[in-house]
Nucleic acid binder design. Structure first.
Length: 278
DNA sequence: TTTCAGGTGGTGC
DNA sequence: GCACCACCTGAA
């Protein structure tokens, strides 16, 4: 039996902070698809029990997915002492875990996220899975599907991929998938490369720029220093840290101020900003 | 009806 | 290099 301690974890913070679009509350409990398994989180006195409803998934794999290997106590202690905003943000988002998700799924998901909003991203990811991914099981009347594989998306035309909420990003996905396929790109390579090299490697794909690359690096390749800079992060950097409104200024500040825990800092601050502004 | 949304690629300088 | 701008489309 796998239990995630609730001292530094809660499902809402983790699944609603914008890193994952595949978990949803069903009858009050979060249910989500991880690889080809359906997981459900049941509250226990001191944590959450991870129940595997579909295909088996080992405790090691579940632990890796929930980033059990990271010491959140140390991370939060370190960040909270840096300044008062990080102190507030880490207190507010104390239950966030930086999930280690599937690279291909993150790559496609964050291509969809470009110039898009969260409800539409969810819609498109959901529709892609329903239409092209494998059916896994039905839980309380809700059908669950695996995220499509490279092989499954390879078979799609741009028109096929233009599902609800997708728009012009269908072309981005078709191109990226073709590039990966035709050039036999190894999606495991960035695990072996450092941050800068893996970022350049990802950016060779159509539809992947700086922001999307950083999301993929942070949410699947375990590059915890990656610091995705989007419109909310820019707003945060201007308002909380007085950073000038220029791309280079944002990048320079982030590189200088947030070091190896940059990715964690970004998630806490992002989640804090999203929930404290009108 | 218009505006906006967790950017990117293309173009012009 | 760097600054613009078009771009699908659902929702308010």
């Amino acid at each position: 039996m796998m239990i995630i301690s609730s001292e530094y974890f809660n499902p809402k913070d983790t699944f609603e902070c914008g890193q994952s679009f595949r978990w949803k509350p069903i009858d009050g409990l979060y249910v989500g698809v991880v690889r080809r398994s359906v997981l459900m989180l049941e509250p226990r006195p001191d944590g959450y029990e991870v129940k595997v409803l579909g295909e088996p998934l080992s405790d090691d794999e579940i632990g890796a997915y929930f980033d059990e290997g990271s010491d959140y106590k140390s991370i939060i202690e370190y960040l909270s002492m840096k300044d008062s905003w990080l102190d507030k943000a880490t207190a507010f988002g104390k239950g966030i875990r930086l999930l280690n998700q599937d690279p291909f799924e993150m790559l496609i998901t964050f291509i969809i996220s470009s110039n898009n909003n969260i409800p539409k991203i969810k819609m498109a990811v959901e529709a892609l899975s329903e239409q092209f991914g494998d059916y896994l099981m039905t839980y309380k009347g809700v059908k669950m599907f695996a995220f499509p594989t490279l092989e499954q998306l390879k078979a799609c035309t741009v028109t096929d991929l233009n599902v609800k909420g997708m728009g012009y990003r269908a072309r981005y996905i078709a191109n990226a998938v073709r590039q990966i396929d035709e050039n036999h790109l190894d999606l495991n390579l960035p695990f072996e490369l450092g941050y800068e090299d893996s970022k350049m490697w990802l950016k060779q794909l159509y539809g992947i720029g700086d922001k999307v690359a950083d999301c993929v690096l942070l949410f699947s390749y375990r590059k915890k220093n990656a610091f995705p800079i989007d419109t909310w992060v820019k707003k945060m950097l201007r308002e909380l840290y007085g950073v000038e409104d220029r791309q280079k200024a944002y990048e320079a500040f982030v590189d200088d101020y947030f070091d190896h825990y940059g990715g964690y800092a970004q998630q806490y601050l992002f989640y804090y900003m999203r929930n404290h502004t009108s």
